[in-house]
Design a protein around this nucleic acid. Sequence first.
RNA 1: GGGCGGUUAGCUCAGCUGGUUAGAGCGUCUGGUUUACACCCAGUAGGUCGGGAGUUCGAAUCUCUCACCGCCCACCA
Length: 930
Amino acid sequence: MFDKTYDAREIEPRIRNVWEDAGAFAAGAGASRDADAFCIVIPPPNVTGSLHMGHALNNTLQDVLVRYQRMRGKDVLWQPGTDHAGIATQMVVERQLAEAGEPSRREMGREAFLNRVWDWKAQSGGTIKAQLDRLGASCDWSRERFTMDDGLSDAVLTVFVRLHKQGLVYRDKRLVNWDPKLLTAISDLEVESKEVKGELVHFRYPLADATFDPADPSTFIVVATTRPETMLGDTAVAVHPEDPRYTDLIGKEVVLPLVGRRIPIVADAYSDPEKGSGAVKITPAHDFNDFEVGKRHKLPVINIFDEEAAVRLSSNDAFFDGIEREAVSNLVETLEGADRYAARKVVNALMDEGGFLEKVEANVHQVPYGDRSGVAIEPFLTDQWYVNAKRLSEPAIDAVREGRTRFVPDNWSKTYFDWMDNIQPWCVSRQLWWGHQIPAWYGPGDRIFVERNEEDARRAAEVHYGVTVTVAERAEALAAWERADDGSIVLYRDEDVLDTWFSSALWPFSTLGWPDRTPELRKYYPTSVLSTGFDIIFFWVARMMMMGLHFLNREPFETVYIHALVRDEKGAKMSKSKGNVVDPLDLMDAYGADALRFTLAALAVQGRDVKIAKARVQGYRNFATKLWNATRFADMNACRIDPRFAPSEAKTTLGRWILTEASQTAEKVADGIETYRFNDAAAALYRFTWNTFCDWYLELVKPILMGPDGDEKDEIRAVTALVIDDIVAMLHPFMPFITEELWAITAAQSNVPRETLLIHAAWPQERLIDEGTAAEINFVVDLIATVRSVRAETNVPASVEAPIVLIGSSATHEAFVVRHEAAIKRLARIGEITVDAVAPPNAAQAVVGEVVVCLPLAGIVDLDAERARLSKEVNRLEKELGKIDGRLSNPKFLDKADAATVDEQRQKREDVSGRLTKMRAALDRLEPIS
RNA sequence: GGGCGGUUAGCUCAGCUGGUUAGAGCGUCUGGUUUACACCCAGUAGGUCGGGAGUUCGAAUCUCUCACCGCCCACCA
């Protein structure tokens, strides 16, 4: 029944089935009808992803919260689900196609490709759930959602359409971050700037009314650039209005080399006299700042690239506007189709040839890269859909400012405010296929119909156009517009999809059934806690705040707990390329899910990275084994659960003491969890279980358990069983498997059936608080520890059962010794205990409280070692006494420190000086060195 | 450039609102056939709390400053 060894591999899958069969994770399971709600929505992992250490940490912490609150009687929902992860998933499938030598996405077409993605989802979508199960995450899987399932897609449509009708979603033509590899726009957040060693190229732009002479600076103006190839699209040169070097030139023109276009020199404060030459080329189509300058000066926008960032001039009307097509035919031919980096080389060479290249400097600068594709992103002028984030951000800022949503640790609210205060329009359209297709239909005359479905769009269009409307593919529709058929109109649907984070932003309410008014939505929204990493505060947290407040008028969560990043044991960020990824599944295989969970909780200190080391996990596996063995020991000693036992009426000091300690620990653990100080909670559990309960309580109690039957033994048995019950319960949120198992075993052994599984059992109540017992136990513990230490230091062999003589003991302490005599003898390996007035000669001596403990072992005690030990101790005490006296003789201290502190110091002085006197006397009693 | 965090024992880290002999785990070293556990027990060594200044009767803890490390945001033609 009770296996001798703890085997996580055997226990964990079995217990998992027990929970599953019982439906233990279901929303509200085990709670009373009127219980308060507690809800966490899981940060949805990528549907085709697998569990990494960050997931393991975050989901462990969420599970600790969820299991704790369940035991507190709350009606708990931990809402799970997965995210379709647009770009990531689409890329994976495209890579698979490429590797298998199959037709590419574009070759197979949208429908066939999407079928392939759904296949892949069907195939790998269960992985992450299985892995979370493995970890013990008690999510209500019966409510699992997926961002692209029907319900959530419906929420997405509803939100998009409503925002559009409210004017908060709009279509705009402006520069976006364009990913020339993925061929889609991406948001600001998906751009990472990287430091790149490049070149700063200085070009001479000839003045239009001078004859260009490379040797004569008065005939040209120098501009510097890190992107020489974009000069083909230059439409101005900007100088600072107050830069004395250039004031004369403002309003004049230069002739753009190679191209021959006449472009103006404009005055604009954007130009920084300190940088480069002080004059800057303006390319509105290829630089965000230049775009703004262009708007201010009404400059033409000449885009020289195609969507893959290759030069495209031949059919480029804007480029040929104002120049002779013939004059640039060579240039166009040379550059057509060259990618941006190749074009850069060519342009530099041509400029050099013409004498327009002044110099090239090495230059380190920041270049924006797509976080997914890893290629430099290109500012690109396109039509995209935007969300007016500024408007939505206002209530979201207020919610945090007014404390309706609280960040833990609080300093993250600053990060949140900084970003929210400067929020930019959110580009939500993506030129991808995998995702929520934008519900917008286009008709002739620049009309857009944003509706929940095709039928509604068609109807809206019919109202608008007053004729029959049909819907077709884009190409077909455009052709129809071209033909301008009479009497009917053809619409086509926007081919783009929404940013994945658009649907994620709805997660806290879409998963609860919104836009329907479901009972779950009423009960669980706003949710209690969101637990996530700081890296997605902007991507996700901020956007959920915005959407939640906008559509439900309530903030989506009360608390946002921001956990640390998991790093390897040296503190490096884990990455596949570095090969330092620690796989949580490996650790679970080796040590069990319980050990991994406890490790992560113990390391989850606020505001500090989590460095995971194998040795640590092993240590907590040992902890599980320790608990297992302690429970087994109790079992072997017939410590049975006794429902009639009333702990508050316990008679034995040991019983009252351990019940007090257990009660205090439960309080500490609860406090740690509730304040998100998981490490404190874990430490309190570890210390109590191992150091207090196993090392001291069980050892002190052994003589009783092995002694004669009677009231004392009965009580200790009942207490032991009860405290183990409490330990198992307190530990359950951290180590759910082993505790659920022990909960069942102890019940079976006691023949007292449990009313519920541990997962639904109540958090340990306060059994008893009797601080008075501490004095007795502490004295005994102190005595044993002191004797052990003295023995070891004076080289008394372990096998010797040394007698001890107590000198100067108070009646109280003498009574303590009598009461725990058997335990003291056993634990300190002592033979006879006697009380005397005078110390025996040549004994090792130590002070415990007011008592001098002597080990009279002439010939066995190493007297030289003893002398050294005593001197050292005397020394230490003298130093400490000096410090205390320094304080107490300082009138300012007596004057300013509060009375309690002064008293404390006085008390301490008394203790220390008492000890010191005794130690000195002890030293004197030793024979002088012969 | 703006912001946030870190620097405590060989290693990984606790130490909250100032008063402890500055702690834990791992590792080291010593001892252990104590009938729960060697994934164990007992004991031991090891730290001028990054440097400097200040506030205070009193600073690992508060303030300033410097150094180094890490991260986030925004930009340098």
